[in-house]
C-alpha cells in the first residue's frame, strides 16, 4: 500500500502550499480593495475615536506583513477573529452557515454521480442508437445553462406555476428542530421528527437539482466519451469473444477502466459546485455560507472573508484528496506502481 501513502503525503504537502498561497493572496486582495472596513462596519455616524479603536484592535494601522503574522498566529489557535458584519466570532458564523451549503452541495454531488454516470453508461452502451441520441440532446441542454439560470427556471415552473415545491428557505416555520449537526436532514432524524425530515428534504430538492443539472450533464457526457473510446480496446473484443453479457461488458470492461480518467474532472466539477452554490443560494434564499460570503465581501468584513475563503479552499482540498484515493483504489497501476517480480 505504500504508493497510496506516498500519493497522500505529496497531496498533503501540495495542499498546504496551496492553502498558504491562497490565504496570502486573499489577505492582500481584501486589504487592497478601497474602503475602510472599520468605517463601513460602524456606519457614517460613528465618531473618529470609535473607528480608530476598531482599527487598532484589528491592527489595521500596522504593516501588512505584521497583520498577516497576527492572522496566522490566531488561525493556529483556531481563532478566525470577529465578524464586523454579524459581530460574532467568524468560526461561529461558519459553523452556522456551512452545513446548509454542504447539505446542498453533497446532495447535488450525489445526484451528479448517481444520475450522470448511469446516463453516460447507457449512452455509451447504445452508442449511435436512439437512447444515445436522446441522452446527448438532454445533457447538452443541461450543460448549456449555468446553475443559477436553472435555479430560476425550476423555481418558476415547479414552485410558482406548479406549486409542488417551496419557493425559499430550508424548513417550514411550523417546525422547531434542535440544532445538532446543522444538517437539517440529519437533525430532523435525530429529533425523530419524520414530518420535519420530509419537509427539509422537500426544501432541498429544487436548489440541489438546479445546482446539479449541469454537473449531471457533464458527468454523463464525459463518461460516454471515455467509454466509447474504451469500447474500441482489444479487451472489449476479447470479452465479446468470451460471450459475456453486454451489460457486464458495459460495467466491468468499458465503464470501470474509463472511469479513471473521468474521475478527476468529476471531482473538480463537484468542488466547483461550491462556487456555483453562491447564486443558487441567492435565488432560493438559502441561508448558506455562500450567501454569507457575498454579504461579507460587500461589507469588506476582513475576518469573515478570510474565514470563508479558507473553508472553501479546505473543502476543495478534501475533495481532491478523496478523488485521489478513489483513483488509487480503481487503478491498479497506481496501487501497484512497482513492476511485479513475476514478469
Amino acid at each position: 500500500m505504500s504508493p497510496v501513502i506516498r500519493i497522500l503525503a505529496r497531496r498533503f504537502g501540495i495542499s498546504l502550499i496551496v492553502l498558504v498561497g491562497v490565504s496570502m493572496l486573499i489577505f492582500a486582495i481584501a486589504r487592497i480593495i478601497p474602503g475602510d472596513p472599520a468605517r463601513i462596519a460602524l456606519g457614517p455616524n460613528a465618531t473618529a475615536e470609535q473607528v480608530a479603536a476598531i482599527r487598532a484592535e484589528m491592527h489595521l494601522d500596522e504593516g501588512i506583513l505584521a497583520q498577516y503574522g497576527y492572522f496566522v498566529r490566531d488561525v493556529l489557535r483556531g481563532d478566525l477573529g470577529t465578524s464586523l458584519y454579524t459581530n460574532r466570532p467568524v468560526t461561529f458564523d461558519i459553523r452556522q452557515f456551512l452545513p446548509a451549503t454542504l447539505e446542498l452541495v453533497i446532495l447535488a454531488g450525489i445526484l451528479m454521480v448517481g444520475i450522470g454516470l448511469p446516463l453516460g453508461i447507457l449512452a455509451a452502451r447504445y452508442r449511435g442508437r436512439w437512447p444515445d441520441h436522446l441522452i446527448r440532446v438532454l445533457t447538452l441542454l443541461t450543460v448549456s445553462a449555468p446553475s443559477f439560470v436553472w435555479a430560476v427556471i425550476l423555481m418558476l415552473i415547479f414552485a410558482f406555476y406548479l406549486p409542488l415545491f417551496p419557493v425559499a428557505g430550508r424548513l417550514s416555520d411550523s417546525y422547531d428542530i434542535t440544532r445538532v449537526t446543522g444538517f437539517l436532514t440529519v437533525d430532523t432524524i435525530l429529533a425523530g421528527n419524520w414530518g420535519a425530515f420530509v419537509d427539509a428534504l422537500h426544501h432541498l430538492i429544487l436548489p440541489s437539482v438546479a445546482l446539479a443539472l449541469s454537473g449531471i450533464g457533464q458527468a454523463a457526457r464525459l463518461t460516454r466519451a471515455n467509454m466509447v473510446e474504451t469500447y474500441d480496446k482489444p479487451y472489449i473484443e476479447m470479452a465479446q469473444a468470451y460471450g459475456f453479457f453486454p451489460s457486464r461488458i458495459a460495467r466491468s470492461y468499458a465503464f470501470k477502466p474509463s472511469l479513471i480518467p473521468s474521475l478527476t474532472i468529476i471531482g473538480l466539477d463537484f468542488a466547483a459546485m461550491l462556487g456555483n452554490a453562491f447564486l443558487v443560494e441567492a435565488v432560493f434564499a438559502w441561508p448558506g455560507l455562500s450567501r454569507y460570503g457575498v454579504a461579507v465581501i460587500l461589507r469588506k468584513d476582513l475576518n469573515a472573508i478570510m474565514g470563508t475563503v479558507l473553508v472553501i479552499a479546505l473543502t476543495f482540498i478534501v475533495v481532491n484528496i478523496v478523488v485521489d484515493l478513489l483513483i488509487a483504489f480503481l487503478n491498479p497501476r497506481i496501487r501497484h506502481s512497482t513492476r511485479g517480480a513475476a514478469s
Binding site: P234, Y235, M238, A239, Q240, Y242, G243, S252, P332
Partner: peptide, 21 residues
C-alpha cells in the same frame, strides 16, 4: 452460449487484450 464455452479465441496483442483493471 457457444462463445467462451464451445469455442474461444486468442488475440494478437496479449497485454492489451486483458482487462487492465
Amino acid at each position: 452460449a457457444l462463445r467462451g464455452i464451445e469455442m474461444s479465441m486468442i488475440f494478437q496483442d496479449p497485454t492489451s487484450s486483458l482487462n487492465p483493471t
